[in-house]
Amino acid sequence: MKNIFTYGGQPAQRHLTVECMKNNKAAGKRMTQVTAFDAEEAEAAEAQDIDSLTIGCSNTAEIRAAAPHIFITAAQHMSQYVTEDEALGGAIEAMSHGADAVYSPRGLRTIERLAREGISVQGHTGLFPARATQFGGLRTIGKTAEEALSLMQDFRRLEEAGAYCCEVECVADEALAELKKHSKLVTVTIGAGSSGDIVLSYMADLCGDTENPPRHAKAFGDLLSIRQQLAAERLRALSRYRAAVLDMSFPDDATTVSMPEAELEKLREGLHKTLPVHQ
């Protein structure tokens, strides 16, 4: 456990730091990363010794409270912030709530702006799903030498901009294995084979909670069938409830509180005395 101060100036402890990631990369020690969209997922990941989380910026405080020691990267979406100033403001807010790094899929100027403020920044290369039309659709990048060499340029530019890390998405495994030999960037890979320093999976995919998972995903559980069973049971309960209300079998004696008979008679007498008689 490493003692740190957060970007917001609070003392804290982490199982993993940026320096640890760099050392693990140098030693060839692979690490794990998963998404967490709520406190329950974050708590489960930390309990099972997952190395790091990638989360949305907006719920950083909630996730940090649930998982106080895990390394957290707060991810900014492509369209979340329009200007560099807005991206910087969002990054500082996430860091002040306990994030250890910020992921930005935006341009090099934005990444450089964040890094200049002492924020650990993770960039992106390979396939950008939000820009898939520029790549001819959702496909693997780097299957040709020319395309793989262009990824090397991305690595170099990200390093120059101050990024410590890069998400590599849907890149040919052999290409990444060669490229990473020539880059200091810690690589977070999804759909890019087994050569990454950190392997990222979506929580829903690895838990088997995705109906049509992407090709690079693998299910290690079966939450989907359990959710389907829960949904079916909910429908059965609602149907039986409605039927019971309509046939007057609910509420029944077991779910109803009754007045003592003597008190009921007093109520009737009182109502008869105080209310006008209807003709």
Rank of each mutant, 00 (worst) to 15 (best):
E41W: 14
A47V: 05
P214F: 00
R14V: 10
A175P: 08
T6R: 09
K29N: 06
I190L: 07
L200F: 13
K218V: 09
R227K: 15
T35N: 06
G90L: 06
K273P: 02
L176V: 08
A254G: 13
A232S: 15
P251G: 00
L264W: 09
T187Q: 03
G208V: 03
R156G: 10
T189D: 01
G118K: 08
L235T: 14
V102C: 04
V277M: 09
E112S: 15
G118W: 03
A65F: 05
E43R: 15
Q10R: 15
M248T: 13
E84P: 11
L185K: 06
A36N: 05
S258W: 07
F135T: 08
A91G: 07
R157Q: 15
A74M: 05
D51R: 01
M248A: 10
L108T: 13
L267K: 12
E263T: 00
S239R: 14
D252V: 07
F135A: 09
A91D: 05
Q80W: 07
N3M: 13
Q134V: 00
L224K: 13
E43K: 15
Q134R: 12
S79A: 12
L179Y: 00
A132Y: 10
E269N: 14
L138I: 15
G118N: 08
E261R: 11
A39S: 13
A175Q: 04
M248N: 11
T210W: 08
T73F: 04
M95D: 00
Q33A: 09
C166W: 06
A237K: 14
Q228E: 15
D209C: 14
C166M: 10
T35K: 02
E146R: 14
A243T: 04
A101Q: 01
A244R: 12
F71E: 02
A99P: 03
R106I: 12
N59S: 05
Q48I: 15
L185G: 01
P105T: 01
E19N: 11
K181T: 02
T110G: 10
G126V: 00
A172M: 04
T60D: 04
Y81A: 12
E146Y: 15
A61S: 13
V102T: 10
A232N: 13
Y103V: 09
T17Y: 02
Y7L: 09
R139V: 02
L275M: 15
A243V: 07
R242W: 07
V171W: 01
A130G: 14
Q228I: 01
A26L: 13
I72S: 04
R268W: 06
I198R: 00
R240Q: 10
A172Y: 04
T35V: 03
I63D: 00
H124R: 09
S104A: 08
G191P: 05
R106P: 01
D154A: 07
A91N: 07
M95N: 05
A75R: 06
T125W: 10
L235S: 14
S201N: 14
L235D: 14
D49P: 00
S79M: 11
F155M: 09
I190A: 04
A243Q: 14
L206V: 10
L179V: 03
F155R: 05
T60E: 03
Q80Y: 07
I50R: 03
L264K: 11
